[in-house]
């Protein structure tokens, strides 16, 4: 402990030293700066006001509520109510307007486009791409080729209930894993692969047995994809005669599709988004280019 008797007056500054001394180096014992001290006291006073206004002190069973009754839960509810009030009549109008009638009202049209575009970026773009262009395994939404239908009603249903998920209203169909489950042999899969590729005019390797492929197709695939292979939107069976291939048109891709099946899924967005947002999304997707 410092010995007060060691305190010396520092002749240069006029302050006393603390009494500590290391090889002739001593520490000045200066008071705290006044400005600092006053801010310190002001903070203490402020905290007293804070205790009174906001929830603060824990008591036996609950805490003091503060005179303004602030609460984080009611605060966020109020902020969201304010947000809805700010968006105001347009959201209300959108919720009451049929999707087909939105385009007749230029102001509502602009609003719905913006509203749908924001919801699309947050919820849909991770799979379908920022512009709706899709990717391998994630359908393109800007062309006019639809798996489950491109009418407003069909798009609305697909967005609201999704595809192959746990929702009881979800779109559902399941292609068998023809190779994995032993329905077709490797040779049969190769034949039907080349037959299916030939349907959309893709060049097939010399010596492919397209007749055998056609027979295998008629026996195994036509029940869903149709005798003419043009698919069936009722059961999400894709059209195999066009140049659009969700999982790729190269021979290994098609073989993999037939061997293991794909059966990808999409969430049911009605479980996460409100009806007005779903409506804006439906309009937005329908308007991306391929809506029927």
């Amino acid at each position: 402990m410092a010995d007060p008797s060691n305190e010396k007056l520092d002749t240069v500054t006029g302050f006393k030293t603390t009494g500590h001394e290391w090889d002739g180096i001593a520490e000045l014992n200066q008071p705290l700066p006044r400005w600092w001290l006053w801010i310190f006291y002001a903070c203490i006073l402020f905290s007293v006001g804070y205790w009174i206004v906001y929830p603060a002190w824990p008591l036996v069973f609950s805490a003091t509520n503060g005179v303004i009754g602030w609460n984080s839960r009611t605060a966020v509810d109020e902020a969201i109510a304010q947000l809805q009030a700010d968006r105001g009549p347009m959201v209300d109008k959108l919720s009451k307007t049929e999707i087909a009638a939105i385009k007749d009202d230029p102001e509502l049209l602009d609003f719905t486009r913006a509203y749908g575009s924001i919801a699309f970026k947050e919820n849909c773009a991770p799979c379908h791409g920022a512009g709706g262009g899709g990717a391998k395994g994630y359908p393109n939404l800007i062309d006019d080729d639809w798996l489950w239908g491109g009418s407003i009603d069909n798009i609305a249903h697909t967005i609201a209930y999704g595809v192959r998920n746990a929702n009881s209203d979800s779109r559902y169909s399941e292609m068998p894993a023809f190779g994995r489950d032993g329905i077709l042999t490797g040779a049969q899969i190769r034949d039907v692969t080349q037959y299916v590729r030939s349907l959309s005019g893709l060049p097939v390797p010399h010596g492919s047995d397209l007749e055998a492929g056609a027979k295998i197709f008629a026996d195994n695939c036509a029940s869903c994809h149709g005798d003419d292979a043009r698919g069936d939107q009722e059961i999400g069976a894709p059209n195999l005669t066009d140049a659009i291939w969700l999982y790729g048109s190269a021979t290994p891709d098609v073989v993999a599709t037939i061997t293991n099946a794909r059966n990808s899924s999409m969430p049911a967005w009605s479980e996460r988004l409100d009806p007005t947002t779903l409506k804006a999304l439906t309009f937005y997707v329908h308007n991306l280019g391929g809506g029927e």
Partner: peptide
């Protein structure tokens, strides 16, 4: 949870 498909998570 449930926001994206399992396939998306795997690709991602």
């Amino acid at each position: 949870g449930g926001k994206y498909s399992d396939t998306w998570h795997l690709d991602h």
